[in-house]
Every structure is written in structure tokens, then in C-alpha cells.
Design a protein around this nucleic acid. Structure first.
Lengths: 333, 333
DNA sequence: GGGCGAATTGCAACCGGTTCCTAAACCGGT
DNA sequence: ACCGGTTTAGGAACCGGTTGCAATTCGCCC
């Protein structure tokens, strides 16, 4: 059923190598053979086997796309952009869902078995060790949405979360908030820690400020709602909260509105990510946008570079954030 | 760098075939050789190449997962469930983003090149021709969220959209609505047409009813918002609307609330899909749930069956819908 | 027409497994 | 120790390409 090199070669009356060469860009074939081969190939509906070619060349044009974040709405956009970017470069994404109950080591073994050209880890909550293990296993890897470190093992493309914390603090201060809450994501997440560090830093420069800290158990709507409920039950609220991400913020917002609190009248809220729902009329969340498209473009570019040139030096790319002003913070004073 | 069969064979002091057999379930190897091989393999960190094995066996354990729906929030859940289901069965998803500007034929060629074991098309808006073309190209295929037809070419797993229309109509009628609107998805989509057909059918059984029909240009928040704005600008609204899906409904809901209309006080709204955001406190959308997990489990099961037994007869599986009552319809009378 | 270097071509080995087939090792029984 | 019937092991061909190398062909000039 499948048409092979040999079939085309016989039909075109040339050798198998000749056929292979006409399909290998930059190989030496005469115009005459090329056209004979191309015609035969077209007649037979020949498409070279990526498996066989991967086997002999060592490059499969497969990119392992690993994430553990299949429930956060922001990842819809992330997957869309990643798959497009990868496809546009002539590669294909082999998707790995690294949810709680799957073994990271097994995933790495699998990626090696399929000899993917490179791995892109797309997650801010996956430990840096995973990417490092990929590298140790000989897989070129880049960590998108990863954490910048002083001595990085693998290339990281993302944002400066400490700066994100500062930016949020500045936004709140500029709008006259002084009794301020940090409603972060999971306390153990590096994103949470970094943003909190930046947030504290900036508030510390304003003596009269009060900072209260609390954490949602996961980056999810319900965790945000639960934590905001808890805060409401345990005394007066702060004037405004910097939330771990948009989906946490939306959870908090829902609880506040349901309890009859006005946002931004009674309480201010600022999120993080600028996911699509943040701009819904029902939501209109003020937030900090991370440049997804750039992060992804750079990640894919680096993954490719690394797969072609394994000795490419490890770099970190931190891209700029933007404050997106909508309706959950009072206007600047 | 990569450890091969040969390396393991030499180290274990056996033939390459012996090694291959210890890694092939159900092959005949003595306990003694097996343990020698396993030890050697462990010492060397050997993992058999999926490429090579795919090349000789013809099965790659790759499943092509094709969709054109990377922006609808419901697909986050869909991708999560699909990737898990596929991985749990020992296969891996090769993701194909079939967005507007990508060539379907190229995608099929690509899937053949990688000799995927089967293709799952996950989309209600992708033409049935795509799946049919896969089949014609010799790829086992199942169409998840596809449309049931009288003489199906490929297996379809999904829901009965005509029944969905009826169900929505019954829900509205039962709550006393008589002046009723259909705010569908794109007019050309089969889902829209089928649901409208069922909707009409059921309303036709209630003589005193008025039905108005309109369509959002895409299954998206903004299209829903735009269409609802248009309706508001062009005269009095119906008492309640059946929306093309949840995201359209949420767009419409946002516009209504912004305009000061009460939902469900002034206007009722019912969506479709039961995506996660439908249950957010800010939204609490009454909707019709399609059983994603079952659709996906069945789809994956069929894809596997088909890949192992290509002559499996073509079946259609339509799974039951559930009305999820939240807060955008007045109570049943 | 002969000679020369460059462009093409085909052969054959190889990528890393799988599997058919035959030969060897093994088993219990006598 | 020998026999007959199973297992098990190894050799070799094959899956469908790629590529180094040597041989051939080509174009061009004298």
C-alpha cells in the first residue's frame, strides 16, 4: 500500500539514491533526473517516510511540547501559538501532558525514544529539574515561562516575575491604595515567591503601606474564590489585591460581587496574564500582560537553534510586561 | 551517544534478536537471557528507538490529533482529556493545528509520513471531507464531535445536535418562555443547522410560540457580543435566547448586563457545552452539557480498535446531553 | 575527435529495530 | 546414555530512507 523510494526509482528508471537526492534539498541531481523522478513520484503519490529519514539522519522534525498546565485558560492561547509556530517552521509538536499522575522520567524516556529534535517545556509550575533532566538525557531543551536563575542550566524564555511584582505594586500605589493585599498562587511556586519578593520590595519604599499576604492553593478559579471567601470571613479586607493570575482574580471577583462588594468601589483587583476572559464584558479585569507571542516565538527559535547547533550557549530571555488597564482598579490619581 | 540494540547485545553476550525479543511483549526468551539482557540494558540506559521499531513493525504508537479549534475555551478541557486518554493507552498525540491558513492536504501528507497509527479529528466545525480524505489516504480515522449522517464514511463520536435543539426548546418552553430567540453559531455550520432544526421542530409543537433566528459569525465571545448588540439595537428582544455555545452566550450576557438588562429577569439565556467558565460566579450560565469525557474515551477507543483492526465496521456513537441548570433562565413553572 | 575537470550517478553500507527460519539447547522419560 | 518434542538462540533479510565513494557521463575547449 505504501509507496517507497524503490517504487519511484523503478518507475522513473533511476537508482534509489537519485530519488532520495531529489527529495533532499541541496543535493546534486540533474534537471532531467529530477523531473523524471518528480513525475514518477507524483503519479505514485509518493511521500518520503519521516520515520525512515529520521532514522538515518537523526533528525525527526519532531518537537516535544511538554506542559502540566492543561486547565488554565491562558494555555489555550499558549497551545495555539506554539503549535502554529512549530508548524510554520516545518516541524510538528509531539504533545506531552505531564499531569500529576504521570512520571516525568517516563516522559523523558519517551521523548528520547522518538528522538525529538528538541523539547520545549511550557510551564511556570513545572520544576526546573525536569528541563535539566531532559538536558542530562541529551535532549536539547528550552524552558518557556521558566524562572531566571543566576547560573542557568537550560535556556529560559519568560518574564521577570520579581519585576512583575514591582509593577503591580507601583500600579496599586499610583492609584492611592495603601492597605494592600497579595493574593498569590500556590505559596510554594517560584512565580509566587518572585512576584511576592518584588511586590514587597516596592511597597517597602512607601513607609505608610500595609501589606497582607495570602495564597490560593492552585492557579485556578475555584482556588481564588475559596481564598477570597476565607479573607472575607476573617475580618476586613485590604483596599486592593494583586492576584496570582487572572483566573484567581476572576474567582476572587466573583466572590466579591456575590457578597455585594463593589469592585473597584470597595475593593480593587489586579490580575496577571491578560487571558482572553479578562477582557470579557462580565469581567473587565485590570491585569499585567505577558507577551505570549514573543515568548513563544523566541522559545521555538531557540529550540531550533539548539537542535541544529547543540553547543549554542545557554541564554535567558526576559521579555517586557505591560499593564492593561480595565475596570477593576480605581483610576490613577 | 545513543545506546542501541547492538550495544546491549554485546554487553549481555547474546544476539541482537535476543535483545529485541526481551523488549517485545509475548516473544519467547528464557528467563536467563531475559535477566542478562535486562541488566545490560539497565546499565547502559537503553531505550529502544520508537522510530526504528515503527519502521519495521509499521506501528508507531502515534495518534494524529487534529483540530481547528484552538481558541474556544471548551477545547482546553478537550485537549487535556484527549492527551491523557491517549497517553494512558501507551500512545502519544501528534498535534495538528489546522487553522485557516494551513493546508488540509499537507496535514494529511504529514500524518502519512509519520505513519501515525490513527487520526482523531476533534472539531465540530471541520468539514467531514477532511476525515474522509484521511480515510482515503489509508489512515484510520475517527471524527470526534462530528456530525451523524445516514451513510457515514468514517466513525463519528459526538452528540445529536438536533436533539440538542429540541432539548433547549423544551427547557425554554417549560419555563414559560413563548417569544423565543435562536442565537446560533455561524449560519453555515452543521451544528448550527442541526440545532436550529431541532429547535424549530419542538417549537412548532407549541402553536402560540414566536421564534426569531439570528447567528453569530463565529463560535466566540466577541461574535456573541456583537450579535446581541445588533439585536438590542434593532428592536425589542425576545424573552429568552438559545445560544450557539457558552462562549457566545457569555458574550451576549456581558452585553445585556452592560446595557442594564437583567438576566434572567428581563431576558433568559441558555448556552451549550458547559465549559468551565459557565460555572464561574460571574457567569452562572444555564447550559446543556455534552459528555466530553465519554466522547473522548470512546473516540480514543475506536481509534485504537481501528488501527489494530482496519476492517472494523464504521459506527456512530451519539452520547446523551444533560441540562445544567444555573442562573440565566427563570425557574420552571 | 580527444582530453580535462566538474557534475551526476549508482553501489553498498548504514541508521536501529523486527521477524522468519533453521539449528542448537533443553526437557522429561526410558 | 539416548530419544523425541519443545523451547530458545542466532543468522540474515527486511523496514525505507541517507550518504560516502568510485565510476560514469557531461560540457567545453583545443
Amino acid at each position: 500500500m505504501t509507496v517507497t523510494l524503490k517504487d519511484v526509482a523503478e518507475r522513473a528508471g533511476v537508482s534509489r539514491s537519485a530519488v532520495s537526492r531529489t527529495f533532499t534539498p541541496g543535493a546534486s541531481v540533474s534537471a532531467k533526473t529530477r523531473s523524471k523522478v518528480e513525475q514518477a513520484a507524483a503519479e505514485l503519490g509518493y511521500a518520503p517516510s519521516a520515520l525512515a529519514s529520521g532514522l538515518s539522519t537523526g533528525r525527526t522534525k519532531l518537537i516535544g511540547l511538554v506542559s502540566n498546565n492543561f486547565r488554565n485558560p491562558i494555555f489555550l492561547e499558549v497551545f495555539d501559538l506554539f503549535t502554529r509556530a512549530i508548524q510554520d517552521r516545518g516541524l510538528r509538536p509531539l504533545l506531552v501532558n505531564l499531569s500529576e499522575d504521570t512520571d516525568p522520567e517516563a516522559a523523558i524516556r519517551m521523548l528520547r525514544q522518538y528522538s525529538v529534535d528538541a523539547v520545549i517545556v511550557a510551564s511556570s509550575t513545572l520544576s526546573a529539574a525536569f528541563a535539566a533532566n531532559c538536558k542530562a538525557a541529551g535532549l536539547p531543551v528550552v524552558h518557556a515561562f521558566g524562572r531566571a536563575t543566576r547560573y542557568p542550566e537550560v535556556p529560559v524564555v519568560g518574564i521577570d516575575n520579581v519585576e512583575a511584582g514591582r509593577m503591580a505594586a507601583r500600579a496599586l500605589l499610583a492609584r492611592g491604595y495603601r492597605d494592600i493585599g497579595f493574593l498569590g498562587g500556590p505559596a510554594g511556586a517560584t512565580t509566587t515567591q518572585d512576584r511576592l519578593a518584588g511586590f514587597r520590595q516596592e511597597l517597602a519604599r512607601h513607609p505608610g503601606c500595609r501589606l497582607r499576604e495570602s495564597f490560593a492553593s492552585t492557579y485556578s478559579h475555584d482556588a481564588g474564590a475559596v481564598e477570597m471567601s476565607r479573607l472575607m470571613d476573617s475580618g476586613p479586607l485590604a483596599e486592593a489585591y494583586f492576584c496570582g493570575d487572572d483566573v484567581i482574580a476572576i474567582g476572587a471577583l466573583g466572590v466579591l460581587r456575590k457578597a455585594g462588594r463593589e469592585v473597584p468601589g470597595d475593593v480593587g483587583l489586579i490580575g496577571f496574564n491578560d487571558m482572553e476572559a479578562a477582557s470579557w464584558d462580565l469581567v473587565t479585569l485590570t491585569t499585567i500582560r505577558q507577551p505570549l507571542d514573543e515568548i513563544i516565538a523566541v522559545s521555538v527559535g531557540q529550540a531550533i537553534a539548539l537542535s541544529e547547533q547543540p553547543e549554542t550557549p545557554v541564554t535567558q530571555t526576559l521579555l517586557p510586561l505591560t499593564l492593561i488597564e480595565r475596570g477593576t482598579l480605581r483610576p490613577e490619581m
